[in-house]
Structures are given as structure tokens and as C-alpha cells.
Amino acid sequence: MIEAILLFRDALYGALVIALVCSALGVYVVLRRIVFVGASLAQMSTLGIAISFWLAGVGVAGVITRKPVILSLLATLLGVVFFATGMRRARIPADARIGVAYVVAGALAILFIAKAAVGEAHDIFLQGNILGITRGDWLVLLAVSVPVLLVHLLFYKEFLFISFDQETARTLGYRVERWTLLLYLTIGLSIAFAMQFAGLMLVFDFLVLPAVTGLLLARGMAGVFASAIGAGLAAAVIGFSLSVPFDLPTGPAIVAVSGALVIVAWLIRRLRER
């Protein structure tokens, strides 16, 4: 079993990096109630990948088709600007705009994939291809994730303040819109890179379930971050370790373990409250 896991150790390292960064950022995603912003950004990232595959299918050669992350990133960043700056001024309710972005991006991605000549491209929608992660891939993931996490360490109190009470932050001179944009940019950047390998379901899982586990288990912000990251990493390791020897799809196995951890955390919380 260990030999089989070691055979895919680069994939495991990749999953751990994605789990680390998405679980940490997921705390803001859940606390700010922007879970579906995360889902929509992931969907827009998928659209970017789908366009890249379609372009490759119609014979467009170049860096855009060789590196789907470029269009994925572009689409995600457009989503980031749309969600971070457009929400306040819009007459349409925020959740409706998120819904529009989610469903339109999803449908367009399916249409582009349907016309793409790249085999098995549909997998990116749900499962991704986490076992295909190479050493180069997880090093790129790490190179993106470390600066993102450093930004969050450095500006922890700023992100906390504008998330908790933006009106008061504004009266103390905080440029709330700019901080929100920076927060969303870090989330979007992480999603765009993670989506290349993890797929929609797993990225969404890492953005939501570990944070929920953390909120159930811990009482302070530091504890929530630590528990969320711990739960994300544990789900990645356990799910991965079960999927390889038992020939299960890795992404859903990790999601199933994340779900089990949420249930365990909920039971612990219930026992504590008695």
C-alpha cells in the first residue's frame, strides 16, 4: 500500500499544497458567507480551461493552449473583479449575480468542452486529474501558495476587520473595497491554480468543508485556522491513501473523508455542549 502511495507521491504533495492554501482561505469564504462566490470562481476557472482546450482542438497553437492556467487565471480574475467591486452598486441581489455567473460559466464550459477535440477533458469539471500532478506541478502550486499565505499572515488583522465589520473599518480609514479585492484576488489565484489538477468538486470541498470543521471544533480565530488546515491536510492524506490501493477516484475519496471529518467535528461539538 505504501509503495503504491509513494508511486504517486508528487500527486500527494500537490494535494497537500492545495489542501493547505484552500483550507486556510476557506475560513474567510465560510465566515464571509461567500461560499458560492468560491464555487462561481471555480466554475469561471473551469471555463478558462475549457476555452483553452477548445482553442487547442481548433488548431490554435501557442502558450495559451499549452498552458490552460493562463486562460483559467484570466477568467478567474475577471470573476474576482466582478464579485469584489460590482456587488455594492448592483441593483440585482448579490446571490442572484453569483448564480448567474455560476450557471453561465458552467454552461459555456460544457459547450466549449463539447466542441473540444481533447480526450477526457470533461473530467476537469468534477474530478480533475490529481494523480497526474508532477513534481514541476506541485512546485508551481507551492510557488503560488506560499506568497498567498504570506499575504494572509501579514494582513491577517486587515482581512479580519473588513470581513467582520466593514462599516467601522471604513470609518477608521480602511479602503474596504481595495482590501476586499486583495482578499478575493488571493482566493481567485489559489482557485485558478488548484483547478488545473483538483477539479471543481475537490477545490470547492477544500474551500468549505475544512473551514466548517474548524468552526465546529475551535473557539478562537487561530484555533479555527489551525483546525481547518489540519482537517484539510488530514482529508488529503487519508483520502489519497485510501484511493490509490483501493482504486477509487482520488478527488471524491478526499471529499468523502472531509465530509466524515465534519461529522466527527459536529459530534465532538455536541458532546462538549452537553
Binding site: 465566515l31 488583522k157 467582520f164 467601522t168 480565530m221
Partner: peptide, 23 residues
């Protein structure tokens, strides 16, 4: 209702926010 009480913050953490711009 402008403040989100779901955040797992201690009372002292919240009060400290009043000094964030000075910090």
C-alpha cells in the same frame, strides 16, 4: 446587525479592532 457575530472572536479581540488604524 452590521456586525457578524458568527466570527469566533473573543471580546478583547473585537475591542482591539478600535486600535487597528493606530497599530
Amino acid at each position: 446587525d452590521q456586525v457578524d457575530y458568527n466570527f469566533p472572536l473573543r471580546v478583547l479581540d473585537v475591542v482591539l479592532m478600535g486600535r487597528y488604524d493606530r497599530i
